[in-house]
Amino acid sequence: MTEASPPSRYTPPDPRMPRVLDVRDLCVELAGRTILDEVSFFVPKGEFLCLCGPNGAGKSTLLKTILGLIEPKSGEVVRSGTVGYVPQRKTFDRDFPATAVELIVANLRGGWPIRIKPEERELAKRALARVGGEKLIDKNLADLSGGETQRVFLARALVTDPVLIILDEPTAGVDVGGRQELLTLMEEISRSDELAAILVTHNIAAIARTAERILYLDGRVMAWGLPHELLGKERFSAIMPSPRDADASGAAWPQDDE
């Protein structure tokens, strides 16, 4: 078993820290094509990791392998507790006739509820309160804005008390106002010492405001280090929007200090 060994100019987390996720020598092939090659990294308890890379870099494949939806060819994924997942907004049917509480309880039960018990409703309410969405509990998913929908999905992921939450492009397709709310929520998660997160995003504002560490993937781990070691660097900038295209919040774009 080889320990993750990034290039020395980047700073990985302290290997002595307790880990919520350990990805070791992961190789994944899909339809005979190698998508992930010897990918190794870990996520310490409470750390907010931003996963970046160009299109086709294997980010979604990595997430699905971590979640157990894809069987790796070799290597292993070790999780130390429940993993919550917020999917991309485009993957689910936004017109599905369902209320927020049903969606959240479905994650608790592993099946769609026909009747919701009072204790389940209370848990859903608490999860929604954590994302400031108590009022959304009985709303239909079709009636929610993009930001509200993602908040409900965040509550859905939080209801099982995960140690790690995976956010797959949560701000994609969300209007500016909703994006600001989501960024604030993600900042709160980032500050939490209990909950770790992996955020896949192309939104530079999201990275600048939340990342405690960045993992740059392109089939292999190209860089794994602290935000100031990557943000603004030439190779990293090539796959990210320029500061002018970044979020209207005026995301900080650290200067290249090399």
């Binding site: 979640l67 157990g68 939806l69 997942y85 999917p87 993957t91 689910f92 049917d93 599905f96 369902a98 969606l103 479905a106 994650n107 039960r109 592993g110 099946g111 769609w112 509820p113 026909i114």
Partner: peptide
């Protein structure tokens, strides 16, 4: 019904459960 409805909403999330 509970499993089927979940799969109809989102196949990936249902599989995860």
């Amino acid at each position: 019904w509970p499993k089927l409805a979940y799969a109809l909403f989102d196949r990936e999330l249902a599989e995860l459960s």
